[in-house]
Design a protein around this nucleic acid. Structure first.
Length: 544
RNA sequence: GCGCCCGUAGCUCAACUGGAUAGAGCAACUGCCUUCUAAGCAGUAGGUUUCAGGUUCAAGUCCUGACGGGCGUACCA
């Protein structure tokens, strides 16, 4: 419809004497206030300046020359400072409602992003411990944005990037080793920055079960580290699966050393004189790209910092043919992003193809007080614990509920409430309620596929239908902004629209024709709720 | 100090990226279950969008400055 209106308006503007490039983008939007019609454009106001005319006069001229299909648009009004408001005709609305039912599980999909071949990299927690609440937001955001992109036609790959070498992993191995000795009542020294979580003991215990005391003579931590990695990765994958997340690939940072990507980056930077040696380390001239300081790429110990593999990783991703690399990470990593972009640009890649989705931190709140969380110490809350407490659907929903750009306060008490206070159930309840009605109708008189929908004329019916029709727009909007919460806002409005309808209009007990039409409207609503919840990765239950 | 993000109802947050009378949920108050699920509905109250300027037909949204909060600013990831 949006396109239809744009295509109708454009020739009129040309007719009014404007050239192709004088015409600004013709924006069609859904007015907030339904009394302003179903679609509106501000084009007349935008043209006021170049045409040096009163916007209302432009609007009038435009409207009088506009040829619109009566079957689609029933009225056009000029309002306020020069808005042009369009109202859909009944025929159009009923036809589109029918369309929802025909498309069914596909309704809401588009080919908006059909040219995008995207790699979404997310979670990417190193296997040093179970996923925590902090990772939760990352995981759910990444997965849901991936789903949104898929719904808009993109082809999407989900990848988990990790590093199982380096200091942190060594520390993990040493921690397990210490616990192993502890378990066998031997002397042990727990490393100073070791991992203190209880899970380390579990890993050590299972080593005792498998190997008895035969590992006591192991002089280095390797075997402990490997066991830890295996157990922890297993645990992480289970947690992800529980959250409805399945990765397509896991990418080990080590690969970048093996395939020469790392050397290539260093060499290229040196050739371009953007990398240099100082005090035994290799530095990247980030000051050339507007930074206050140059940054270290390779430490004097010979170990690279994370920035170097990060750059190599991105070039590698682009080499694999993706035209969009979407990285999801927390606000604390924001500073590395410009360096990576500078790096890949120097390497001759298009930095426009790399996009970052940054999210702010999560605070868990319980009984009105924030949880204290420190990752290294034992007092973090794992994602599994959180899901045990509030459930998987609620967990996903809460992480998606807010704009990624604002801090998220996760109120555990509110999340635990089975009803009223919990916004997830509102959506699921609406769906379950409709299914229940449909089951009952099915017993009385099975729903026909082609009732006369034009019998639907109550305000609640009409506004519900119109709400249903904007679902694809809402999916597209959320996808383009990479902001799933926009879809949640929509679904809340939809559910609210349904409950008003439910309140105002009875279905069962009305005369056959009306019951059939209303049943179909309810069915379409359930479909859209289910599709929306599917994008969010949340169940749409048939009974509650 | 510098960089990024944020400041909207008592609380948690929206506001289609510059549009028309700033909206939801929770908390408070008033009604509504003999009828399709009350995990619900209808209504009341709650605002100088932190403050001060500016840009324009139009500013919560853009610009400048202040104030307040978060994160970063490592040869940690």
């Amino acid at each position: 419809m949006e396109k239809y209106l744009q295509d109708a308006i454009k020739p009129v503007l040309i007719q009014l004497g404007l050239t192709e490039d004088q015409i600004p983008e013709i924006k069609i939007e859904n007015p907030r206030d339904p009394s302003h019609g179903d679609a509106a454009t501000n084009i007349a106001m935008l043209l006021a300046k170049p045409l040096r005319k009163n916007p209302r006069a432009i609007a009038e001229e435009l409207v009088s020359n506009l040829k619109l299909d009566k079957k689609k648009i029933s009225s056009v009004e000029i309002a306020g400072p020069g808005f042009i408001n369009f109202r859909y005709s009944g025929d159009y609305i009923y036809d589109q409602l029918h369309h929802v039912l025909v498309e069914d599980e596909q309704f809401g999909k588009s080919d908006l992003n059909k040219d995008i071949n995207c790699l979404v990299e997310f979670v990417s927690a190193n296997p040093t411990g179970p996923l925590t609440v902090g990772h939760g937001r990352n995981a759910v955001l990444g997965d849901t944005v991936a789903r949104l992109l898929e719904w808009t036609g993109a082809s999407v790959q989900r990848e988990y990037y990790f590093n199982n070498a380096g200091r942190q992993m060594r520390m993990l191995g040493l921690s397990v080793m210490a616990r192993y000795h502890e378990k066998l009542n031997r002397d042990f020294t727990f490393p100073e920055d070791g991992y203190e979580g209880e899970y380390i003991r579990d890993i050590a215990n299972s080593l005792v079960e498998e190997h008895g005391d035969s590992l006591l003579n192991e002089s280095d931590e390797t075997i402990f580290k490997e066991k830890a990695e295996e157990v922890i990765f297993d645990d992480i994958q289970q947690t992800l699966k529980r959250m409805n997340i399945v990765m397509d690939s896991f990418f080990n940072e080590k690969t970048l050393y093996e395939d020469g990507s790392i050397d290539k980056v260093i060499n290229t930077l040196r050739e371009k004189e953007l990398a240099y040696d100082k005090e035994g380390a290799v530095w990247f001239k980030t000051t050339q790209f507007g930074k206050d300081q140059d940054t270290v790429l390779v430490k004097s110990s010979g170990e690279p910092t994370y920035r170097l593999p990060d750059i190599a990783y991105h070039t590698q991703k682009l080499d694999r043919g993706y035209n969009l690399c979407l990285d999801v990470f927390g606000a604390d990593h924001i500073d590395t992003y410009p360096d990576v972009l500078s790096g890949i640009e120097v390497m001759g890649y298009d930095k426009e193809k790399v996009e970052v989705l940054v999210y702010q931190f999560v605070t868990l709140v319980k009984d009105g007080k924030p949880y204290k969380m420190s990752t290294r110490k034992a007092n973090f809350v794992t994602l599994d614990e959180l899901m045990d407490e509030v459930g998987e659907d609620v967990t996903r929903f809460f992480f998606l509920m807010r704009s990624p750009n604002t801090h998220l306060e996760f109120d555990v008490n509110q999340a635990k409430e089975a009803g009223e206070k919990n916004p997830v159930f509102y959506l699921q309840y609406a769906h379950a309620r409709i299914q229940s009605i449909l089951r009952k109708i099915d017993e009385i008189s099975p729903i026909s596929d082609i009732p006369d929908l034009s019998i639907l004329s109550h305000d609640s019916e009409i506004s519900l239908i119109k709400k249903l029709l904007t679902f694809p727009d809402s999916v597209a909007l959320a996808a383009q902004h990479r902001e799933p919460h926009k879809l949640i806002t929509y679904l809340n409005e939809l559910a609210s629209g349904f409950t008003s309808f439910y309140h105002d209009c009875r279905i069962i007990g009305e005369k056959e024709e009306l019951m059939q039409a209303r049943a179909l409207l309810a069915k379409a609503t359930a479909r859209v709720l289910a599709n929306g919840l599917a994008i969010l990765g949340i169940q749409a239950p048939d009974r509650m």
